[in-house]
């Protein structure tokens, strides 16, 4: 349905996206995962026809849309990373304005505005100024505006940044429902791996402009099929203990986050007794030690040596 073919984008000296290939099939939710600066937003901007790639092609229904973006623009709804709304206008005024931008008119426009207000749960706030909204309400309206013209593809660029857990949950459920009930295709970028893990059928992982992994969740997690992900939890850590873990010949990755240390080790190696001895040696009060199922975060750690939120 929609393809990025060998796309690169250079901004002066910075190559934001390098030889990216992506395809999106109708009715699926595709996740684009990566830390800040990975090139996700640039890829999304190219996909949304907002910027032209330095090289490569964007194809919609097998037709190139780089020079003739109109067919794709009619088919997509874009939820920008920023709250792309007018704070001084009310919810309804914002929806009416953007609805007219999407060429909706008269009773059809009013009907769509009512449907969207219902969908995003802001019917009671239709006359309220956006300026008075919480971050979560603004995010919901930000999504609602993108759906006014009933797009085939919804492109969401980090739509849950800076909002409370309830609003985030509401947005994730809404996206899931849209996909299930309306077979809406969704391209979802985030640096929250749990969001992508929850929502997406297929995932593209980017880092420093490169595509480093892609496939279904299961396929990606298979990357770690020959590895064990060991989680160690304790009240406090000793720097010598961490140094010894990092220097261990059988441990491929060590990531410390708060009271938890995550280790990636070969499956055939059992380090449990050795780790327990080391904690005793350094006087560390161990709380738990277990092998866990690999997450996307672990995959990213394995592939890049860094955590997604580093």
């Amino acid at each position: 349905m929609l393809e990025l073919v060998d796309i690169s984008k250079r901004f002066k000296k910075i190559e934001a996206v390098k030889s990216l290939n992506m395809f999106i099939e109708q009715g699926e939710i595709v996740g684009l995962l990566g830390p800040n600066g990975a090139g996700k937003s640039t890829a999304i901007s190219i996909l949304s026809t907002l910027i032209e790639p330095t090289q490569g092609d964007v194809r919609f229904l097998k037709e190139s849309v780089i020079k003739k973006p109109a067919p794709l623009r009619k088919a997509i709804g874009v939820v920008p990373q920023e709250i792309a709304l007018y704070p001084q206008l009310s919810t309804e005024e914002n929806l009416l304005f953007f609805g007219r931008i999407y060429r909706l008119k008269g009773s059809k426009l009013k009907q769509r505005v009512n449907e969207i207000l219902e969908l995003i749960g802001l019917t009671e706030k239709r006359k309220a100024l956006v300026d008075s909204f919480s971050g979560g309400m603004k995010r919901r309206l930000n999504i609602g505006v993108a759906m006014l013209h009933n797009p085939q593809i919804l492109i969401m660029d980090e739509p849950t940044v800076g909002i409370d857990p309830q609003s985030r949950s509401y947005i994730l459920e809404t996206v899931k429902r849209l996909n299930k009930e309306h077979q809406m295709t969704v391209v979802y970028t985030s640096h929250y791996m749990e969001e992508v893990d929850y929502l997406c059928d297929r995932i593209y992982i980017m880092d420093q402009g490169n595509l480093i992994a892609s496939g279904t969740k299961e396929e990606i997690k298979q990357i770690l099929s020959s590895e064990n992900t060991i989680s160690i939890q304790a009240d406090r850590w000793n720097s010598k203990f961490i140094a010894q873990l990092k220097g261990h010949e059988s441990i491929t990755k060590v990531h410390v986050e708060g009271d938890e240390i995550t280790l990636i080790t070969p499956k055939e190696v059992n380090l449990f007794s050795e780790i327990i001895s080391m904690t005793e040696e350094y006087g560390i009060a161990l709380r738990s030690l277990h092998v866990k199922s690999p997450t996307l975060e672990d995959v990213f750690l394995h592939l890049t040596g860094r955590a997604l939120r580093d």
Binding site: L50, R73, V78, Y102
Partner: peptide, 14 residues
């Protein structure tokens, strides 16, 4: 431009 409203208008094929 800063709030990406301009982008939204352009994506609306204006």
């Amino acid at each position: 431009r800063q709030d990406q409203v301009f982008d939204r208008i352009i994506v609306g094929d204006m």
